[in-house]
Nucleic acid binder design. Structure first.
Lengths: 217, 217
DNA sequence: TTATTGTATGACACCAGTGTCACATTGTCA
DNA sequence: TGACAATGTGACACTGGTGTCATACAATAA
């Protein structure tokens, strides 16, 4: 956690620092990000940085937390009303909301994507406790879907949620091209929503309980 | 490419160096690997290292090439006879062969897996030309499958090969746990072959041409 | 033996980064 | 005004890495 000193700062200064950090942490793996770059971009002296944060990891953790909350907040409206939907509709809406979030907040999404690809040892250093909440989330959804008979009972739930969880990030990479934040990600919104749909369709057909539901053809 | 000096070395020394490099490059992302560690493990002086290689990247490139060839060689027998197989059998055999290779050569596989997760900018620095041969490979296979009517014509081939390609690495991570090379990967051979099968089954059902093939239920 | 060529070696200059510390500045309250 | 607390600041010591270079050694050909 940042020190109290940081929270006492003016909004302007705080957001300058956050902006700089997000820009750096969303443009390269953590190992390559340096305090030097961030303070230069934020235009604060080195000493101050250490007045605000324990070290870079402290800031990283904070940025991740903030961007994570932002995303959760964004997805709230989807999560709110999904209780009675078909599993596949839930998954689809989650994907689309996630992609839309990435499109509208490419810089934040980039931070998350880089984090996801980090070394496990680093991840654990940043968040020693919680890990793979995303996968657990999908697991819960799929489990419920199975209870309702919407999912083929032969499907291995942990495996399927693993696939879905990983593909979330894979597909974002696919669009981001990982060439640095986004060269007009928004402009291709149509394209990638369509593509995500195609992808999910493949998975859906693979997971659906064909003994109960009629097949789509 | 390593310098001639390296190739003139005794087999023993060469393999000591290669072993050390593989151990390091398969245990952490490239940014964290240092010449210091490798020369210590290989027990050669610093000066010698630079007598053999331009720098760490030079060695990395070489290791990647060697391990890649090793894998290709291993998969040769699968690739040789797959011409007349059903696409899904081809994919399945490729996956199984890949996983078996990883099980039998966990250290080599680990190097490849870390490489796959590297930053695009680093990848391009290592291999400026060839990139994503793996994806192209899947693409060719799927394209052929479609020609033969085995694959749903609505399936987006680049997207599907993207999924298959990425899952190759995802699934290896899933078993390796990325906790460092392998805690008895071989002992779970049964488990993971079974699990890979389940995964492929999901994908297969999703891709198969249901207008032509009877559904499996 | 003596050049010559190829190899081995580790001290070293250099660099990029970190975290700290003594000192400067500002604000507030008695 | 003075004094105390909070904050700002950048020079600096330190660390862990890189790539080089002068020098030592070995093998071989003249």
């Amino acid at each position: 956690m940042p020190k109290q000193t940081f929270f006492n700062l003016t909004e302007d200064k705080k957001s300058r620092i956050l902006d700089a950090a997000i820009a750096e942490l969303g443009s390269k793996p953590f190992e390559k990000v340096s305090v030097a770059e961030i303070i230069e971009k934020a235009d604060i002296p080195r000493g101050s940085f250490y007045q605000y944060f324990e070290d870079l990891k402290d800031l990283y953790r904070y940025v991740l937390q903030v961007t994570g909350e932002e995303k959760m907040c964004y997805m709230q409206h989807v999560m709110g009303q999904m209780a009675d939907w078909d599993v596949f509709k839930i998954i689809r809406e989650l994907y689309l909301a996630g992609l839309k979030f990435a499109a509208e907040n490419p810089r934040l999404a980039a931070v998350g994507n880089y984090y996801f690809r980090e070394d496990l040892s680093l991840k654990l250093e940043i968040f020693p406790d919680m890990e793979d909440r995303g996968r657990e989330f999908f697991e819960a959804i799929l489990a419920k879907g199975r209870e309702r008979g919407e999912i083929d009972p032969d499907v291995d739930i942990p495996m399927a949620s693993f696939i879905l969880y990983n593909l979330t990030y894979d597909i974002t990479d696919y669009f981001f091209g990982k060439t640095g934040v986004s060269d007009g990600l928004l402009s291709h919104q149509e394209d990638y929503l369509k593509l995500a749909d195609k992808m999910l369709y493949i998975i859906e057909v693979g997971l659906r309980n064909r003994k109960k539901e009629p097949s789509r053809d």
